[in-house]
Design a protein around this nucleic acid. Sequence first.
RNA 1: GCGGACGUGGCGGAAUCAGGCAGACGCGCUGGGUUUAGGUCCCAGUACCCACCAGGGUGUGGGGGUUCGAAUCCCCCCGUCCGCACCA
Length: 930
Amino acid sequence: MPADTPPHRYDAAMAAAIESRWQAEWETRRIYEVHDAAGDPTRRSNKLFVMDMFPYPSGSGLHVGHPLGYIATDVYVRFRRMCGADVLYTMGFDAFGLPAEEHARQTGQHPRINTEANIANMRRQLDRLGLSHDKRRSVATTDVDYYRWTQWIFLQIFNSWFDPQARRARPVAELAAEFAAGERTRPDGRSWGTLSEAERREMIDGHRLAYVADSPVNWCPALGTVLANEEVTNEGRSERGNHEVFRRPLKQWMMRITAYGDRLLEDLDLLDWPESVKTMQRNWIGRSTGALITFDAVGRAAGIEVFTTRPDTLFGTTYMVLAPEHPLVDELLAEEWPVGVAEAWTGGAATPRQAVDAYRARAAAKSDIARSDSKTGVYIGRDATVPFAQTRVPVFVADYVLMGYGTGAVMGVPGEDQRDREFAEAYGLGVIRTVQPPDDHPCDQAYTGDGVSINSGFLDGLDVDASKALILERLAAAGCGRATVNYRLRDWNFSRQRYWGEPIPVVFDEHGPVALPEAMLPLELPELTDWAPRALARDSDPEPPLGRVSDWTEAVLDLGDGPRSYRRELNTMPQWAGSCWYYLRYLDPGNDKALVDPEVERYWMGDPEPGGVGGVDLYVGGVEHAVLHLLYARFWHKVLHDLGHVSGPEPFKRLINQGYIQAYAFKDSRGVYVPAEEVEGSLESGFEHRGERVARELGKMGKSLKNSVTPDDMYASYGADTLRLYEMFMGPIDQDRPWETRSVVGSQRVLQRVWRNLVDEETGELRVSDEAPDDDLLRLLHRTIDGVRSDMEGMRFNTAIAKLTELNNELTRHHTGAPREVAEVLVRMLAPLVPHFAEELWHRLHGYGAGSVTQADFPTADPALLVTDTVEVPVQVNGKLRGRVTIAADADEADAVAAALSEPNVAAHVNGRELRKQIYVPSRMITLVV
RNA sequence: GCGGACGUGGCGGAAUCAGGCAGACGCGCUGGGUUUAGGUCCCAGUACCCACCAGGGUGUGGGGGUUCGAAUCCCCCCGUCCGCACCA
């Protein structure tokens, strides 16, 4: 620090002092706490519920990219508070998860200790930013008082079924009652009264929204857990850690999210979300309409059911394909090859069994990428019959057909499907075109467009749509097919073989799962001495850590019919569970009677506009949650809505994805990253690290690229307000942008100039004058108020800051200190962006007994000062700018043109030629055409 | 391959919603001043080309179109980023 720095300059040290003083003051005066009860419903139009996606409390702490969204919501919330809004704003922690378990395994420390330490550290880093959260409302998903309600919601879902007629969830008790009353019958016609207890239980369990299924799962031995499909990469490896993943059948809890496919799709239209996120959700749900068609297998009773979106091409079927995992494969396999079978079809194997076994083994060893390279398969030695055409076609096993989509079986139509075409070429299968292609269509390509049906019996001459309609009618009449809707969306695998998650509040008796009664919640995690997840052998079976607690796995409980022994569920919930509903707990975090008081829920989640969709008014977070978190939360919310626990159909009305802050990273000649902070040089001169030339690239900020910049670094060099201002100034909130530490000083200079216009740097005395601002300054002030207000409303903080900077630059040019009236308004406009800085100046202006600037009104522009008597208007001649004239604001076109023509340069370009056209856009532009 | 977003100075970006002065604001850079340490602060300049100035020409990835007027609207192409990916 140079010795001659003025003693009262706004610098990092002064910022630190100001920031800690006002943070303590705000805390003492509890100014960010919002009322606990529901507000006055008649003033609901004034309510505002804003949230950031809550963070996982990572052990490595924050870098400057993390708080971008938090600062943005804080600025917005502070602005809206100053405009009179009733704001609910807080933040919690998504604290269950694998990293805490991994840390625990390394240190021997219970995950809770590490988790709580990380939360404390993160709170410290965030507090330093001056976010205006109501801290009393903060929750962590690991709090027993919190996960008690996560478990409660699980039971609500478990105790519900989806009624397809009503298109909503209903209690299973009602389903049982309908069976008992005979209003609903089993497919086999047996009445409820004749069923055994086991059969009744099975019947009901088969309808629940949360159910146990023995289904193939993604078993990852290295992580010691199964993973959701979403946690597995395209290459068939774990997203976390890139470990091998194997498909294994296992009893798993599933959530019947597919029942809500249509509503999740339809209600996207009600939401104010980025189009890209809606598109991703639509693709994920993957609704497609088509038909299920059953083909008879020659010589077997079993039929092969396929899903197709093109039932009109049925007559073009020349073969069939089953996915390698398809359960019918083993049943349909022929004992031996038919006479004269082609070598290519057998894979050189002696029997169909050997061919299929070898093919399956090869398919399992290949990555999905390799699988997609070429079409391969083997014949299973059996044929099927094409309905109506009555032709015999061979049945293959091929890995280009996926078990996870449709029925896992397809009809091969090489005439109208390019994938089928490629397979047919490879195995010498016939091609029958059933849609007439245009003349210029290449004859070696499938034709997927519209056209007239040919070679299709009763469909000939009809176009695609008419053919589809007629074939569906005939299939239904013949009993071998029907129209259907298929979804790419699968039911949600809800079990994890982990310790550090919510225990599932279910026990098992001899018939299956039994819900714990609500009174037994919370079901707390047992203490473990040996809780660490284990990396297991490749061929091992899934083993949940809770299975190692012998006095917990078996429980003697009285669930209504006396004490009995039950087996506990050993899996825990996935990390998504806690984040599915935390927004509801923010509303009423201390409630021990309900997850949220209904009146409080209605106040904060009800739509301010009558007929609106409701939900959180603004939700800000990263686009990485575009599908999973947001889809799961919407699903839970809809179930809770159906059951009457929440008032609206959607949790998040408006969503903004904040951009990523990227940072330059530097690689040496070996391709190893070097610490970015030690690199010197420039783009022109080249970059060097310890004398060695390094290459620059742009990437995600983080440890692996050695390019992290922490908020703590910025607090030390500039203070929190400068960091806030810089992050908001860098660009639009939803855009990625590169971090540049050397530019941060610009934002500090802006604050320093504001400070200097109000405070004498030598004496610390106030520099404001009591003289009224001159007319130009006053008009600029009100234009600024007007612009800043609308920029803040639209969350365009970068341009709001630019306008404030312009105003301040104008004050700087006066050299005399700011007129009090201007200073006072400027400080209020700065308050949402740089709250500590503004609070300090506010108190210097108004004396230390003044109330917080946080609670002051945001300035309002005087409309009279937004209009001017005269305006400077540019003049175009033949589309080119030739001069400017100053004319009366209310001048008519004739006056404007006359003024324009009197401008020498304009006159020179008109050069006496005849005016062919003249246009005056009031106050904007004069255009002359000659 | 399919879908989405986006291309503006040396850099981040503004103007795009509603066609009307392209480059606000900041970084960087150049020059000057104050101090004197090359730090800080203040002032001026900074898209490119020509010109002493006045001014002129060119310019928003490329090409075309609509219009008195296009960064903005429409069509084609090129490029970058993101998502999905044999979805039958």
